[in-house]
Design a protein around this nucleic acid. Structure first.
Lengths: 222, 222
DNA sequence: ATGACCGAGTAACAAAGTCACAGACGCGGC
DNA sequence: GCCGCGTCTGTGACTTTGTTACTCGGTCAT
């Protein structure tokens, strides 16, 4: 039965003493969410610490006009850094989280979270390691958004999404939401990339045909 | 003698038990820095936790081309969140910190920092409260940079710098560095603000002549 | 088949960033 | 005084990015 052994999916938490593990199991609430569901929205008050067991969660800002920008993702085995920040600071969410795939996660009530933070160095390390990693991530996001050219950022994103393969399944709108720009801008840049023979684009997918030039543009010279 | 009582400047740390206070005093190293000094730079490895006793520290990103953007400030009585993140994650600095005024601060070796984090709930609360506050700050910075119009952001910044008064001492370059844009852009917007009679600008200073309209533009309708 | 929806293309314009200047002011040295 | 120098500001031409308002062509359910 999954509900009794989800802790095994977090290598860090397996190290916890038995009494704290059972505390997690007793108080943690297993939740399943379908693809696309909004896990929290800007302005809400967090009540639970969140651990992702399975699937991927996208944390993003949404502008008044509806433009989006992806800030970071929470993968299996990770906790939500923004929730950590809001719980600690008694603050409301300043962004929203969306399930990118079907997601299975554990919600831990604030009380349990606070108890474990104060009682367990292992739990603290688990929580604050990913918290600090996200913090430095955000610095890089700001650097990119504030200073990097959009063609460079798009090239980086295409290479990232390709994961070494040549075929990438995505839409202009999804790319725009990743980068925090408008679909038309992605469209223009894609036309230019195609004109230069770097990619070949279809409806909802594209193929990288000249990885070397994309890498050169993306700044990763190697 | 200041070196024995700097802890008094941090109301949170005054609550620490005597043995931990003396640990702070023994291991903390007092440092004085003149205005403009670089406290750390991107790429450096942090060795010490930083506490600001007096003065103001600006944490900023600098682009290859030399443009700057202010991410947040560390005021008297606060600790440096980026240093916290890098110490916890064994990561290098991803931004730089500059003394905006003469600064007096305490550098706490990693070992002492780690000890206190694990031993003292009070110290933990002190550190992580400001850490989480900065985290949510960064979300707002990203939202502004990615989605807000520059005239709105400039109006906000002018009102913020004015602190209720009408005279503001700053240059176009300083404003541009705050907002992460180019001086020319600030200059254009200032011309427009002047043309509309909202401000009156001189060399190195300006006067707000129509606060109401600036507030309306800045989105704070009140 | 037909209308709704979605992904993509396009054109015209506005806002923002870049580049290369020039002028203006302030201040110290002579 | 006057000169030289550095800093702050203004300007114009151009590029890049964002916005608005469309079109076109597929796909899918009814």
């Amino acid at each position: 039965m999954e509900s009794t052994d989800w802790i095994d999916q977090f290598s860090a938490l397996r190290e916890l003493p038995a009494d704290l593990q059972s505390k997690l199991q007793i108080n943690g609430r297993l939740v399943s969410l379908p693809t696309g569901s909004r896990i929290y929205a800007a302005g809400q008050t967090p009540g639970n610490f969140l651990l992702v067991l399975k699937g991927s969660v996208r944390v993003q800002q949404v502008s008044e006009s509806g433009r989006e920008i992806t800030l970071y993702r929470i993968a299996s085995g990770e906790s939500c850094a923004l929730t950590t920040a809001c719980l600690i600071g008694y603050d409301d969410y300043s962004a929203e989280a969306v399930a990118e795939t079907a997601v299975r996660c554990v919600a831990l009530p604030r009380q349990t979270f606070d108890d474990l933070i104060s009682q367990s160095p292992i739990f603290r390390k688990f929580v604050f390691a990913s918290f600090s990693a996200r913090f430095t991530d955000l610095f890089r996001v700001i650097d990119q958004v504030a200073f990097a050219r959009m063609d460079v950022r798009l090239a980086q994103k295409l290479l990232e999404l390709s994961e070494g393969k040549d075929a990438v399944v995505t839409t202009q709108q999804q790319l725009a939401s990743e980068l925090g720009t408008a679909r038309e801008v992605v469209g223009r840049l894609m036309s230019e990339f195609q004109r230069r023979g770097w990619v070949s684009a279809g409806r909802g997918s594209l193929i990288i045909t000249d990885r070397a030039h994309l890498e050169a543009l993306s700044g990763k010279n190697g």
